[in-house]
């Protein structure tokens, strides 16, 4: 999930355009992370050293790792370690942007360093299953604070995991997004220790594309079936959230049946705390909300 927030960081800092980010998000799965990017991430080489190794490689028929060892930038052990390390999504995204010519190695080094620093992350934290770190990044990104902070940040954490697992990882969290009041929304209440209304909203095209991915079917219209599929995603997400809360705190939460309405209606809830989580997929924006009543 750090990948998605890293993408958002690049966008918010205006380092990449939305279009280039969309393309890089789609390309990253077929991208191979090169040794230079791995070495920059691990802090073993600077971007300037990586560029020097690349320049050298253009003149000799040797592997990058061998050249870096010869030039004294890396040890053979470090090359082995880097080549066997986990190629996380952030690095795949960074490599895709470097390959596309949107970032130089130096720009990548600078932005990766500032992103890690601002979020207090180490390269080891980039392993996607670091739940605590992910919650911290989420709380910081959405400025979640107060009595229900733990429940809300955990909700977003589970939501992003489920989006990655069931819909796709090619999305970027946005700071804000506008949907039409008449756009489709499905809602469901979570009740127990606290009471929250959750919703998913999307315009027709994004709703159809989202539902198509989740159901693994080719849907063409935002009809009753499409809305049913989106409702089931919400129910699945909220069910897994309740299980997680039950397992981690011992508190039981219940769910009400989902209801189909509109984005305008879903926004009318009188809430103590309302968090909107717009995410941009390659097919459009989907808006998630959690409102503590």
């Amino acid at each position: 999930m750090f990948t998605q927030f890293f993408g958002s960081y690049l966008l918010n800092k205006k380092i990449v355009s939305p279009e280039n980010l969309r393309v890089a998000m789609e390309k990253k799965d077929s991208t191979r992370v090169k040794l230079g990017v791995l070495a920059i991430n691990a802090g073993y080489m600077t971007a300037k050293q990586v560029d020097a190794v690349h320049r050298k490689q253009a003149t000799v028929d040797k592997r990058i790792g061998d050249i870096a060892v010869e030039m004294g930038y890396l040890t053979s052990e470090q090359v082995e370690e880097l080549l066997s390390s986990q190629k996380t999504g952030c690095l795949l995204l960074g490599q895709a942007l470097v390959d596309m010519g949107c970032l130089t190695n130096e720009e990548f080094e600078n932005v990766l360093t500032s992103y890690k620093k601002e979020n207090n992350l180490t390269d080891k934290d980039f392993t996607e299953d670091d739940n605590k770190k992910a919650s911290e990044v989420i709380s910081s990104f959405y400025d979640i604070d107060g009595e229900y902070a733990m429940y809300v940040s955990e909700y977003v954490n589970i939501l992003f995991k489920n989006l990655i697992r069931f819909v796709g990882d090619d999305f970027t969290p946005l700071v804000s997004a506008e949907l039409a009041d008449s756009d489709t929304a499905v809602t469901q209440e979570i009740c127990g220790e606290f009471c929250a209304v959750t919703s998913i909203g999307a315009g027709d095209a994004a709703a159809v594309a989202f539902a198509s991915r989740f159901s693994e079917e080719q849907l063409t219209e935002n009809d009753e079936y499409t809305k049913d599929v989106i409702s089931e995603f919400l129910n699945l997400n909220n069910g897994l959230y309740n299980v997680n809360i039950s397992n981690s705190t011992g508190k039981e939460l219940g769910l009400t049946p989902q209801a189909v309405s509109t984005v305008g209606e879903a926004a009318k809830i009188n809430a103590k705390l309302m968090l909107t989580v717009p995410v941009e997929f390659s097919f459009g924006v989907v808006l998630f909300t959690i409102s503590i009543k």
Partner: peptide, 25 residues
């Protein structure tokens, strides 16, 4: 067959005679 396989839901279902449990998806 549910996504809400919490301990509370499962023990209630077992109490009332459910045969088994299937986690969604």
């Amino acid at each position: 067959a549910t996504s809400v396989g919490t301990e509370g839901n499962l023990s209630e279902a077992i109490k009332y005679g459910a045969t088994d449990f299937l986690q969604k998806p």
